[in-house]
């Protein structure tokens, strides 16, 4: 197997794994049950999306995507900090009220 072919396959495998990861973390966002669980899953989702963009950067060879990945990581962090403040102010509700969780 040549090195280029190896890269092609590994990026493909990584993209598939990350796509599954996106779906799995979506499960936790949907089923909750509390707001904190959803915020945690959202934080992880941002990391997965960052990895996805990184894998795309490798696959396409467009390294500009790296800046997008780093910006996404920054955004995920800020969002989690803001949402943690929100959790603190509002109080986590343990009830599985799906409508309220949004």
């Amino acid at each position: 197997m040549t090195a280029t072919l190896f890269i092609e396959w590994t990026t493909l495998i990584s993209l598939v794994l990350l796509a599954v990861a996106l779906l799995v973390s979506l499960v936790r966002i949907v089923i909750g049950p509390s707001l904190s669980d959803r915020v945690l899953a959202l934080d992880l989702l941002a990391v997965v999306a960052m990895g996805f963009v990184g894998a795309i950067a490798v696959r396409t060879g467009l390294w500009l995507y790296l800046d997008i990945a780093i910006a996404l990581a920054l955004l995920g962090f800020l969002a989690t900090v803001a949402l943690a403040r929100y959790v603190l102010l509002r109080g986590a509700r343990q009830s599985p009220a799906q409508e309220e969780g949004r």
Partner: peptide, 23 residues
């Protein structure tokens, strides 16, 4: 290239395991 590809797959696998753990 081999090193980078291996790191990439390892990273993706860890991320997937993290989401499985969260569920």
């Amino acid at each position: 290239l081999y090193l980078g590809g291996t790191l990439l797959v390892l990273g993706a696998a860890f991320t997937l395991l993290a989401t499985i753990g969260v569920v």
